[in-house]
Structure formats: C-alpha cells, structure tokens
C-alpha cells in the first residue's frame, strides 16, 4: 500500500481545527485553557466563540474542576493544556470530579512525549497514557497525524463520556484521509501482512510505516495496525492479526510501563500468549534535545522498529 504525505503538520493544529469546527456545529461545545491558547492552537475558537471560552489562567486543577461543573447543565467541555499539566498535575481532580463522577469532559493534551523537545523532561510526560487508561470509564485516544486528530475531535464531541485525547508539538507527515472519520475503539488497518504484527500509536505510526517499507524490501511482510484508541482496545482486531502472524511489535512515544505495549501484552497473555517486542521508553526520564535526536537516543526510531520486528520473528 502506498502512503502519500499530503503535507507536514503538527497534530495540535489538527486539534485546533477540529475544535473550531465542532464549536461551529454544536453550541453546547465549550473550551477551557490554562494560559496556553497559542500552544494548543485554540485561537480560532477563542476569537469566534468568546462567550463559550474560559481562560482559567495557570490553574489546571481548577480548570478540570470547572470542566466537570460545566457538564452539569449540558455543556461539552474541552480542556486544553500540555499533556503533563493535563494528567500528572491534576490526576486526583480527573479521578474524582471527572472519571468517578462520570462527567462528559474531553481532556485535550498537547506536547506529549519526547517530541516536545528542548523544554526537557519536566514537560515531556511519558506516563500519561498509563495514568489515564487506569481510570475506570476513561477513553484514551492517540491519533497519528493532523487529519486524524481533527477527526478525533469530531468523534469525541459526539461520544458521551470522559475522554483523554493526546497529541503533540512537532510537524509530522500528514497522510491519513482528510475525510475518513475516526471510529472510537476501532483499530485502523494500514497494511496487511503475514510475518509480524506491528501495533503503533501516535507519532510512531509514521515511523512504523517507514519500517514496514524497509522490511518489505528485505522480504518481510509486516502487518501494520494503527491503534489510535488505546482504551477501549480493539481486542478483536489485535487477536485476529496475531493469530495470523504469531509475533508482535508495539511502538509508542511513552514509557513501556503502562503504555500501549503493556495493554496488548496483557490481552495476549490472557488470550493468546505470543512473542512480543516493545518499542517504548525504558523506565527513564527524557531530556532536552531536538525531537529527532531524542527519538534516536531513546530507541524510538524507524531502525528500532525494524530491529524489534526481526527479533520478534526470530522468537516465533
């Protein structure tokens, strides 16, 4: 299959575009931001729907609580700040006021992972997927490019329940269809294959595409599935793929502990024990550097996915 890069765009801009569109479509959509409007690309929403926008200043805990409150009365709040301040900083507020209370809050988190770059480890959260997926009733979505992030915003606006939407800062290849909707909980088949199943999420989906193209040249037919919904996991699609290929690679910009690989390993251990290799950060904090330097240093590059695929195949 051919993957055509339409352009290079940041996923956070996909969020901004999607937010503006659903703001237009649905007067119940409201947005909150904690002093990072520009970074989250929320400017258009703020400009055209000022009465439905709440600037909270630098008070993320308060913002999450306010969002929970706004649902009481029928609004659909979208909160925007960096992924670290969307999760780690406000975990108990999300746990009690949003998740346990069953509130329809959409927690939208930018600058996730290492590719935030030079700001360094304080801001590079690599544990957020784990924290969010552990909360009962929380839906966790990690789209792979601009178009898919935009589609994700439409999907979560139409979905009733708390959602964590994770996206990032750098410009990356935008290759998914502009018109394809995102179906929550439904994995996206990108390439069918027989030798190994590669499950990737977020920025690493494009790296995985590069990896399968290289593997194909070496005569290895990899199957690539984009897991944009980490929770609820598409168990059926994963088990179907693995029954065929009999070995697995997972790839994500997150700690190995608590990430996508960990969810898939659990599914397989319980249902279909299979050799699995995980491309993820191995129990370390990040550091300052350019996104590409950091992906290389922490073992999240195309070459790492290729090596993991070969190793997984050798373990069959």
């Amino acid at each position: 299959m051919e993957f055509k890069i339409q352009n290079y765009q940041d996923t956070r801009s996909g969020f901004g575009a999607g937010l503006y569109e659903i703001g237009k479509l649905n007067p119940k959509v409201v947005a909150l931001c904690a002093d990072l409007i520009g970074s989250l690309k929320m400017d258009a929403f703020v400009k055209d729907f000022p009465e439905r926008f709440f600037q909270t200043g630098i008070s993320e805990a308060n913002m999450i609580g306010m969002a929970a409150g706004l649902t009481i009365g029928g609004y659909i709040p979208f909160t925007g700040t960096f992924a670290n301040f969307s999760t780690g900083r406000v975990y108990d507020q999300i746990r009690q006021s949003v998740a346990y209370s069953g509130k329809n809050v959409k927690i939208c988190a930018s600058h996730a992972g290492l590719t935030l770059g030079e700001d360094g480890a304080t801001h590079q959260i690599l544990e957020d997927i784990g924290m969010m997926k552990m909360l009962p009733g929380m839906t966790v979505i990690v789209p792979c490019d601009y178009n898919q992030t935009r589609a994700a915003v439409h999907a979560i606006a139409a979905f009733d329940g708390p959602v964590y939407l994770r996206f990032g800062r750098p410009k990356v290849p935008n290759f998914t269809s502009e018109t394809e909707p995102l179906i929550i909980g439904k994995a996206q088949m990108l390439q069918e294959g027989t030798d190994v199943s590669i499950f990737a999420t977020g920025h690493l989906v494009w790296k995985a595409i590069e990896a399968i193209q290289q593997l194909e040249k070496e005569g290895i037919h990899a199957e690539l599935i984009n897991i944009h919904t980490i929770k609820p996991l598409d168990n059926e699609a994963i088990l179907r793929s693995v029954s065929k290929t009999k070995c697995v690679v997972t790839a994500e910009e997150h700690q190995r502990n608590g990430g996508l690989g960990d969810s898939i390993a659990q599914l397989l251990a319980l249902n279909l024990p299979t050799p699995i290799e995980m491309v993820a950060v191995d129990d370390q904090f990040g550091q300052s550097g350019t996104p590409e330097e950091l992906l290389g240093l922490y073992g999240l590059e195309t070459a790492d996915i290729i090596a993991a695929a070969k190793k997984a195949i050798s373990r069959k």
């Binding site: 030079e118 360094g120 304080t122 550091q287 300052s288 550097g289 330097e293």
Partner: peptide, 27 residues
C-alpha cells in the same frame, strides 16, 4: 537545551548540575 547537557530547558537535579537543589518547570 542541547542533547546530553546538564543545562536542561528547565532546571533539574537529575544531571547533578551544581547549584540546583530542586527540579522546576511545572509551575
């Protein structure tokens, strides 16, 4: 702010930079 630096984007004790006693960045 460069790779492998002790002078991270936000101050940290993680790389043992003398003079820093606490990481900060999250306000």
């Amino acid at each position: 702010r460069k790779l492998h630096s002790r002078l991270q984007g936000h101050p940290t004790t993680h790389e043992g930079l003398p003079g820093v006693r606490m990481s900060s960045g999250s306000l």
